[in-house]
Design a protein around this nucleic acid. Sequence first.
DNA 1: CAAAAAGTTGTCCAAACGGTCAGGTATTTA
DNA 2: TAAATACCTGACCGTTTGGACAACTTTTTG
Lengths: 236, 236
Amino acid sequence: MKSSPNNHILIPPEPVDFDPTTTPTGTYKAGKKRDDNLARILDAAEEIFVARGFKGASIQSIADAAGLPKANIHYYYKNKTTLYQSVLSKLINLWNTQFNEIKAEDDPATALDGFIREKVRISFTHPNTSKLFAMEVISGAPNLQVYMRTDLRRWVKDRAHVIQSWIEQDKMPATDPVQLIFLIWSSTQHYADFETQVLSIMNKSRYDARTQKKAADFLSDTILRGCGLRPLSAKT
Amino acid sequence: MKSSPNNHILIPPEPVDFDPTTTPTGTYKAGKKRDDNLARILDAAEEIFVARGFKGASIQSIADAAGLPKANIHYYYKNKTTLYQSVLSKLINLWNTQFNEIKAEDDPATALDGFIREKVRISFTHPNTSKLFAMEVISGAPNLQVYMRTDLRRWVKDRAHVIQSWIEQDKMPATDPVQLIFLIWSSTQHYADFETQVLSIMNKSRYDARTQKKAADFLSDTILRGCGLRPLSAKT
DNA sequence: CAAAAAGTTGTCCAAACGGTCAGGTATTTA
DNA sequence: TAAATACCTGACCGTTTGGACAACTTTTTG
């Protein structure tokens, strides 16, 4: 595993001055204490950033949530922007799902079902990650512009190409592959991003496994049927 | 039209101290200048709040965007929270769509198609409104908790009841009405909330009428087919 | 085991910001 | 037209906050 895989994507003109995964002298030092603190800080920061936004998240509050003194945060991260971008970088890795691996030879229904279920699972297990990404995009994605115009666009283009090949092989009826990807993204992420709303309407205080399964089953069935495929749950 | 239709929903314990639609002595005064300024402030505030979050949106920047001196904002709104809640109140009115009016006697395909197209239209014409609502919900909806647990929950319950009656009349196959509403909400709002991402991937700088139509057609066809209805576009 | 490097933290400060207020000007009212 | 009311705004202030820094302790290294 690389130490800082996506930093180059975020802000090309102004590179991150202080990479927290390297020590001040530049030598990588995987101390347990260090890794532990970094993980605590990143987790705390993600939560606070989601709840209060970038400006509203004070370093003091992040430090409190991480159980560290404020000045310690500044030992690992040069400033708040660096910390924020580190959280974003970590987040982008979650985007690399199994749907990356789809091939023209695959069965569309199986591949789409797997994609939908994986996205639902991530939404239920890492809601804050999805929320932070959503907030960043909603605000105009000032820290993700380059990523979206390069890596993400290429990802969608390649996936759309495979879907198009399924259509040309008559494995599924014609549909717009890009819109289909948007549909899957939006409907699955909704359970993470709008967690508060979904829970309010369902009159629950938190998600349970049953809710997740129902959501996954519904979305897989409905979307597969929606693009003219036989849902996997259908009896033969 | 009532002057302040939804303020009671937002924060029941601490009512808004200064309602900007009334003058200091309490008499309603629909001066053109006043209305004009209020509209400019609300529009500017919505934009700045979306771009920078509640804490990040300085009153100075809102004033600049509205073309007014900072102190003038404080003439109309007691404080930043009051202003923010006024923007939220305005926003909730947009939720009252034609889908409110659905009846058990209606045709499901026609009603759902209308709902989907109306939501798509709102997403393309009022993206900031949708974005602000999304940011508020993502952050835990601290100012909309009561609204979601009362009005919105009841709205969904009533709509779900009508959909259920369609199912029982065999007008459409069985499906989970609440999940269906979530699917329509999420997939349509995606074009507003994730505008930046959609545009980046489509390699465009702004939406055009053709994109909106393609999105509406795709979503109406796919979702109707997804819940076992014949898409309106299908030839007889 | 001593020197160097890494890690820790209390304290301080300048900048930004929300909000107040006094002293205006414009508009309405009688 | 004069008094009252609505409207406007520059200047000011207390608080919060990001960040710097020096002094300190702990851990690693040779």
